[in-house]
Amino acid sequence: MKILVPVKRVVDANVKVRVKPDQSGVELANVKMSMNPFDEISVEEAVRLKEKGVATEIVVVSVGPAQAQETLRTALAMGADRGILITADGPTESLGVAKLLAKVAAEEQPGLIILGKQAIDDDANQTGQMLAALLGWGQGTFASKVEPSADKVAVTREIDGGLETVELKLPAVVTTDLRLNEPRYASLPNIMKAKAKPIANKTPADYGVDLTPRLTTLKVSEPPKRSAGIKVKTVDELVEKLKSAGVIA
């Protein structure tokens, strides 16, 4: 079975983003960029399925600026076999990306597509579900366990009250949640080897997809600031403060 893994280049999870003074967006110049953490979990899951002999080939695909090639190289160093870079300058929305991925899926015919449940930049949490809809496939979102068999995959999902398990007909779309696995670090020899792995360069026009955004960002502002309160010295003082604030009886 071939597995397709879409990956996104985003601001590194440890960077505290700053809103630009003109409110046109957040400051992205000279900011460390990395693979979206949920996408690392997707790559790791695909590599584990290959190590178990379930997957035969892992294709990673990224839609973004030319530098997204680095993100693909990271995925190749983790164990993916080849990459597809669809260069798109300017903003991308989940719907447009899902349309591109549906075209890639039609070409590549994967048995499983594994995506991160959300990207930590726009926090949309949409692409996997939209892709499944466009392909007419089943979706196992927010996965904490993925168990493929011959023509089905059982996906255990993180839901509000606990866990639930659904069974999907293959091919299917899975989106990953935090506890699915712990992604590996690429070893130096594998990073070197990844440089020789092929990456195909494409454009949205090659797939006939129009990425024109449907949403216009009018402004980006700072969230309301919460100011620090006071330090209390003792538990008694804390209890007294909470009583006078009326939050405990």
């Binding site: 719907l95 949309a124 939209m130 927010f142 993180e158 839901i159 955004p213 449907r214 949403l215």
Partner: peptide, 23 residues
Amino acid sequence: ATSRGKNIAPRVAALLDVAQVSE
């Protein structure tokens, strides 16, 4: 924007060719 809503709404949006506004 519960785990159920987040699972279903984007699938609806794609079926209607609409860009969802999340959360």
